Simulated assay, not measured.
Amino acid sequence: MSLHLWWLYVTAVFLISATPGPNMLHVMTQSIAHGPRRALATMAGLMSAVLLCLIASALGLGALLKASPRLFDVLRYAGVAYLVWLGVKAWRAPVGLAATAAPARSHHALYATGLLTGLSNPKLIIFAAALFPQFIDTDRPFGVQLAILVVSFVVIESFWYSIYALGGVKLARWLEPVNRQRLFNRASGVMFVGFGGALLGARA
């Protein structure tokens, strides 16, 4: 991989990761609900989804999805259903004393939710299936290129996770009034459903 191609990749990933999407919204909401330290489990789940999608794409899953629209549709509809479920859950999330009385979620549950959210992320699915393979030069060693691309993505994605998590910490203070909590929960719910709609319109 040439340095020029790597810079194009880094720029694309930086801009895509910075754009608000299910992953970043999930990091922020979990940071608000559980604090930035416990949100690390959520970030780990999201990052696992990133690694799975990128490696699967590099190994040929992206080409398989293009060749098999029905398989892509199955994955797409499953992702849509999960994002809509997250939206409904966020809309109905407890506020005030009911929220503080709710039992703390385990790290395993936070990780699993992050993993499923990442795997249903329309931005990640489209990037992995359509764009990621184009940055691999078939005339150069495959393993080295894959390692460079994946590590670059992980570093950039981790940076934005940190930014959104810290933003959630600051936003948590503003959300102390119950009416603001309810408004935020409903806005988050609408956004998750909107991301589901974006995934529904995606094509392999």
Rank of each mutant, 00 (worst) to 15 (best):
F127Y: 01
L52S: 12
R186G: 07
L124S: 02
D137P: 00
L65I: 11
F153K: 07
S158Q: 09
G118L: 00
I16C: 11
Y164M: 04
A93K: 09
F195Y: 12
R173G: 14
L131Y: 05
A41W: 00
V95Q: 14
W85G: 01
P177N: 07
L119G: 03
A130C: 10
R203P: 11
L86M: 15
Y82L: 11
L116N: 07
L149G: 01
H107V: 08
S17T: 14
H107Y: 10
A147M: 14
L15S: 13
M43C: 15
L51Y: 11
M1Q: 06
L171T: 07
L54C: 08
A78L: 15
A67F: 04
I148K: 15
R76A: 00
D139K: 15
Y9C: 04
L183F: 09
S48Y: 07
L46Y: 01
I32V: 04
F132P: 02
K170L: 13
V13M: 12
V50G: 05
I156N: 08
I148M: 15
P69V: 09
T42V: 05
V169P: 08
I163H: 13
L97E: 14
L200G: 06
S106I: 01
L75C: 11
S120K: 01
W174K: 14
H34Q: 15
L175Y: 03
G197K: 07
E157H: 13
A202V: 09
S158L: 14
N185G: 10
A202D: 05
M191W: 12
D139P: 06
L146F: 09
A41H: 01
A104Y: 08
L71Y: 07
G194V: 11
G87Y: 00
M24H: 13
F142N: 05
T100A: 11
G189M: 00
A101K: 09
A172D: 05
A63V: 12
G194C: 13
L54R: 04
F72S: 07
G60K: 01
D139N: 14
S68G: 11
V154A: 10
L199C: 03
A39K: 06
A44W: 02
R38K: 11
G60D: 05
L46R: 00
G87F: 01
A56Y: 05
P122Y: 00
R76C: 00
V84T: 12
A130V: 06
N121C: 01
W85D: 02
L25Q: 13
N185C: 07
V151M: 12
G79T: 09
L86N: 07
Q145N: 04
F153V: 06
P177Y: 08
G201C: 12
F153W: 13
F127E: 00
G96P: 03
F72H: 11
T42Y: 01
S48P: 07
V88D: 09
A128K: 00
V84K: 06
R186P: 03
T138A: 15
D137H: 03
H107E: 14
L116K: 13
R70Q: 12
H107F: 10
K170P: 10
F153P: 07
M28H: 08
H107P: 12
L5F: 06
L171Y: 06
L149T: 04
Y82R: 12
G21N: 04
Y77P: 07
